[in-house]
Amino acid sequence: MSVLTLTHIGGPTTLLEVEGWRILTDPTFDAPGRTYRFGWGTSSRKLTGPAIPAADIGPIDAVLLTHDHHADNLDDAGRLLLPAAGAVVTTASGANRLGRGTVGLRPWDTTLLRAAGRPDITVTATPARHGPAGSRPVVGDVVGFALTWPGQEHGALWISGDTVLYDPLRTLPQRVAVGTAVLHLGRVGFPLTGPLAYTMSGADAVELVRLLRIPTVVPVHYEGWSHFRQGRASVLAALAEAPDVASRFRWTAAGEPLSLVV
């Protein structure tokens, strides 16, 4: 049995502490108020700052970066943390941009986190598509991450990354048994692209959790930026129609640790 302590810092940024490891996902620590350009006429304003300042995070053994090219997943203050991290794992294209020994993975590639006195953690990149069909050349590469280590009881710890619900996610159970999912939601959209969605909605989450039979879900990355179209209230509205799924969601206030048996 392992106990995972998960601290949602804001946006997608989450500190994962398990078996002596301290792992940070998608570091974003800039102050709120700035508008960031995402390219192709899209942008977003950061509305909420981190619950824990970068200076107070402490030592980080690894950073899991679902993608490096959007500031709501890696901002200026987050970039400053990367050189001190023990390992940085991201997309293959992102590793080329970041350099400095960054590990780049394509979907279903794996890498191993190793340290004396701690169990090895296998990190497997999982598929993600940050928008509608055909959008990858515009929005760029994204991956999720499945983490496994000896002693897990309920399956892999999965960070979905910024993705819509599409067929490779529906078939995820053929490759990975997910025990705990950190789901990026928010149904991102932009005025320029009208009704098109670039991340999952609450209804998508319901479908995915049922398909993957995920026992525990921690939602993140659904508030704090102007490009989100669905905040917590919208997700809760979808869950109200699916009590079997709602009971699996664990909501956590930013900055407050949540302990889970994984």
Rank of each mutant, 00 (worst) to 15 (best):
Y36R: 02
D68A: 13
T111C: 14
T42H: 00
K46R: 15
H70D: 12
I57L: 15
R118Q: 08
D120G: 09
L24R: 06
G49W: 13
S93C: 11
T111N: 03
E19Q: 15
T42P: 04
D76F: 11
D30N: 15
A87N: 13
A51W: 02
N96H: 07
S44L: 06
L98M: 08
L74T: 09
T25F: 02
A92R: 12
R97W: 04
R100Q: 14
T90C: 08
G131Y: 07
A62R: 05
S93T: 09
G58Y: 02
H67W: 10
T25L: 14
R79M: 13
T25I: 09
T91M: 02
L82S: 12
P107G: 02
T111H: 08
L74A: 06
G20V: 13
A54P: 14
A77R: 15
A77P: 00
A55I: 00
G99L: 05
A92T: 13
I121L: 12
D120K: 12
H69V: 05
V103F: 06
D109C: 12
A54W: 02
P50K: 11
I52P: 06
V123S: 04
S44H: 13
L47P: 06
R97V: 06
L98E: 03
T110H: 12
R114W: 04
A71D: 03
D76Q: 14
L24S: 03
H67I: 01
R100D: 13
V63M: 03
F29W: 01
R97K: 14
D68K: 01
T48G: 07
R79V: 06
R22Q: 07
A128S: 13
H67L: 11
R22F: 02
A55Y: 03
K46N: 04
G99Y: 04
A62C: 14
L113T: 10
G117S: 10
R100C: 05
R106T: 10
W40N: 10
A128G: 05
L64Y: 04
A84F: 12
D75A: 01
G58W: 02
A71C: 10
A92W: 05
P32T: 08
N73V: 12
P83N: 08
A116R: 12
L113P: 14
T42Q: 07
G104K: 06
R37P: 09
L24Q: 12
R34S: 11
P132Q: 01
N73P: 01
W21D: 04
V18T: 13
R118H: 09
T42S: 13
G101A: 09
G39Q: 15
T110Y: 10
E19V: 08
A77S: 15
V123M: 03
G104E: 03
W108D: 05
P59W: 05
T111V: 08
D120R: 15
G41N: 04
G49F: 15
P107S: 01
R129P: 01
A77G: 08
T48C: 14
L64M: 09
A92E: 09
P50M: 11
A71Y: 10
R37F: 15
R22A: 05
T126P: 04
T42C: 07
L65M: 05
K46F: 11
R37M: 07
L24H: 09
A95P: 03
R45A: 07
A71N: 07
